[in-house]
Each structure stands twice: as C-alpha cells, then as structure tokens.
Design a protein around this nucleic acid. Sequence first.
DNA 1: GCCGTTTTCGGCCCGACTGTTTTCAGTCG
Length: 574
Amino acid sequence: MPRANDDAAALLQEYADLLAITGGDAFKARAYEKAARAVGGYHADIATLDAKGLREIPNVGKSIADKVEEYLTTGRVALIDEARAAIPPGVRELTAIPNLGPRKAMLLYDELGIASVDDLAAAIRAERLRGLKGFGPKTEQNILHSIDVLKRSSGRRLINKAMDVAEQIVADLSAIDGCERCTYAGSLRRMRETIGDVDILVAAESSAPFMATLVDLPHTAEVIGHGDKKTSIRTDQGLQVDLRVLPPESWGAGLQYFTGSKAHNIRTRELAVRAKLKLSEYGLFEAESGKTLASRTEEDVYARLGLPWIPPPLREDRGEIEAAQRGELPDLVTEADIRGDLHTHTNLTDGLSSLEDMLAAAHARGYAYYAVTDHAPDLVMQRMTTEKMLAQRERIAELQGQYGKMRILHGTELNIAPDGGLDWPDDILAGFDICVASIHSHFNQNRADITKRLIRACENPHVAIIGHPTTRRIGKRPGIDADWDAVFDACARTGTALEINSHPERLDLRDEDILRAKRHGVKFAVDSDSHSTTHLPYIRYGVGSAQRGWLEKDDVINTWPLTKLRRFVRKGGS
DNA sequence: GCCGTTTTCGGCCCGACTGTTTTCAGTCG
C-alpha cells in the first residue's frame, strides 16, 4: 500500500517547486525539498507518528511538522493549496522537461502565457519564442526533443507505483467472503519496467461484491465502466485498474489470458489451433465438440498445449515457446536466491539513513553479506574525503559481527571520469572489499569516447561492477550511447559484472540489454542502490528485470557464497 | 525553513556545463 510518507513527500516537493517557480527564497525551497526526501525515505510510517515523532525526521522542523500534521488530519495543507492556486498546474508541468527549470518556466508563463507542455510545443513551432531572453534556436530544438521523450513515456507508470496500488487492491478483495483466488495479472505480473494499467483477477462464484468494493475504494476517483464481468476505475493518481471476476473453474485460463503478453498469447493460440483446439480466457476446448480440456490452472492449460508452465517474465514471444518445447526454459533467478546487496549508500554521502540503520535493515532481510558503497571524492557535491572513507571503514570493522552472521563489506561507488579515470589511485582502491564504478555526468560524449571510457573502467583491476551502466532514467533521460557489444565483451574478458540497478526509476540494465550481455558471457549484480532503508526491497524489481533477461542463479554474482564472490571481485589477482 | 552552535543568527553540497551572452543565468548532479 502506498504509505502516507509518499503522499506527504509529493506535497512537500510540490510546494518546493512552487516556491522555486515564484522566485521565493531559494534556501526555503531547498529546505522543503530536503524535507520531502527525508519524509519519503523515512523508515517509519508517518501516519503512526505524533508531532514529536514527526520532528525527529531529519530536516523536518516545527513549520514543516505542522504542515505534515495538518495533512495527516485533514488531507490537505492550506498554505500549499493557496500556492497552488496562484500558478496554473501546467507551469509546474513544464519543469518536467529536462533542462527547463523553474525560472524559465515562469518566464514562459509571464511573457507568453504558456501554461502547459502542449502550449510550449505550439509556441515554439509558431516561432513565438523568438526574441525571448535566454531562448535561442538551440534551446528551442532541445526543448522540442525533450517534449518528445516525455510524450513517449507518458501514460505509463513506474512499476513500484503500480505494484503498490495492485497489492493493496488484491489485499482488499482477498478479504471478501467468497473470494477463492485473487491476484494481479498483465504487464505487472510479467514485471515490465513500466505499467499502462493494472489488471486484477478474482475467482469467485458471484462477482457483485468485488465490483462494488472496487468502486467504493478510497482511492477510486472515477468509474470508467461497471459491469458484471468487468469493472474499470481510475485512481486519484490517474492509474486505470481493470477488475475481472472469473468462475473458479476458469481461473487458470483467465490468468493465462490476462497475463499476456499479447504476442505470447497469439503464439499459444496458434499452438491450440494447430492441435484443433480453441484457447480463450474461459479455457482450452476441443474445437469441434466444445469439450473443455483444461482451464482450472495455468499449468493444466500449458500442459495440454504440450508445454511446461512458463514464468510470466518470459512471456514476451522472445523464444520462450520454442525453449519450452525443447525443454530448455531457464531456471530463473529468484529474489530468495539473492544473498546480499552490493550497491548501497548511507548518510555519509547522499543516503538518508545511518550506517547502523542500513545494516539493521539489511540484516532483517536475511542477507549473508552487504556492501556499503558510498560515493567517492570526484562527485564533489557529496563532499567525500579519504579521511571520512577511512573512518567509515573503521566503524564497519567495529560493527562486524554485530548483525548476526551478516558480513559487512566496505565498498565505494566510484565516478567514471570522461577519460575513464576513477576517484582514487590503485593503492587506495585496493583497500576496499568491493568497488562499483558508475557514470554520473558527461552523458553526451560521442559513442567512441563513451565506449573507451567504460572499457577503461572495466580494465581497472579493482572495479568489480559497473553501476547503472546506461545511466538512463525512465521517462526522463535516455541512456548514454555506447558500442554495447564492445563493452559487454570487455566485461566478459576482464571479469567485470554489470549491474542491474533495481531502483524503479532506473532498472538499468534493461531486459533487452541483459539478454544481449548474457550472450557475451557477462555476469551480473542485482543491486538496490538504496539511499534509505525503505529502498532495500526494490531489489524485487531488479530481480524481475533479471528474469525478463532470462538470467539464472549462477549468472548473478550476489547469489553466490561469499568466498566465490570474493574470488570474482579479485578479478584473477591475488 | 532547518540546523547547529559561536545559543540567536548565519550558512545552507559546489562545481561544471550549456547556450546564451559579451560576462552570465539557469540547470544539473
């Protein structure tokens, strides 16, 4: 279920944006931004906190605690409502365009009355921005391109947002009398990186109580359609949810049908037709007699088609049918296989939680090992120093053994400079248990330079993992342009793992990249890149991507026992 | 607006890049 923390954080962030747009005190805006981040990543559910508890959240003082409390009791904050009323919502929307910040958004609104992304695109095409201070031809082109990127991703949600909604609805519907089965299907069950709408299935004799409950849920904002077999609603966050209630004997066929993908279902239906059968959401039937052959479970349906059950993340018609027919489906890695997280932060750099809190949360997840990998000095804004790093190492040595048998690894996330160089010289790097190296800037280098840059990082004997390799941010920033086949070759040759970063905004590498990299013999690390204790569970989404990339347990280095992992990290050195 | 102390106000992540400008503002990480 979405925590109140997320809603409050969004509200505080909105107020920070509004302050920045109206040109208020920049430090005040920053204060709200910092508070928003802290509330969003706070370990406790704010709905359970009193005024004093709220004040204990870092960067939350009296004024912001009062506003959060007002939100918790009334559902709104008067001051934020006022600020919102002063600026059309479309103006804030403009700042979602990369390289267009609050000042330019406000200028566009003040000078030209532009109050939406569509307005802006139209204004540029009508050449109305000519002569506007700070906007030249290059900027116009960049904005148009960015709007394009934005549009292409619009309408789809990050997987964690859709998952929160789906899991809450499944819990609500499962509690109703007469509910035999209930789960989510569709692209969410296939663990796609973004979700268009949420499909919920229920197996029950009578549909009415489920339909009625969905329509009356607190987050239901609009009823799109309300029928006997199907009801569709839109949540207050604009996410469409379709509920289908199936007779229990059709559960398996329905689940198979509504899980998709469309391409996979076309293939399974073709198989049916060739066997003189008919496959629908109600079951697998003999074409002539109409006799039901299978429908109660997915396993039955696949078996009657001559196939083993196919895990949903594989159902994209990317060769899974053929592999299933040959009995060569991969034995996919699962979340339970993950023995540790190899890329995480603390509040020593830009994390929100303390070292001790992160370790306690990692231990609670049952990890056998856990790497602390704060940023290194080249990311100047993080103000890391060699002294701070060494102090952290000492502290970790003290804490070793205090979290059951979990081994704490001292690592770092290095910054790969434009020339492929790293923050620290080799003798310092040698002191770490594990080094992740990632690109954080200069995304626009040409393909040849980026490729050389990544390969040079791989060739460093201390770099075990390339973090978020493409640096993309879903819906916000495309990935860097590299000769990936050359990079994958270098990873395989040097024994450098590629990260599958599990943060829902990154999911980097993507499933297609993973499939490609695996063919080069690359190993992978599924990491959370946690900046708060609340981010550790994101690993499930990285595992989802790994499954979509057909990875097995042995492909993922953080499923390995520590001794084997340590051998890999040494890259053939001593 | 928050924080930390120098306990009552001054500092707040800092540097680089881009596209604009003609010396810099805005944006980003």
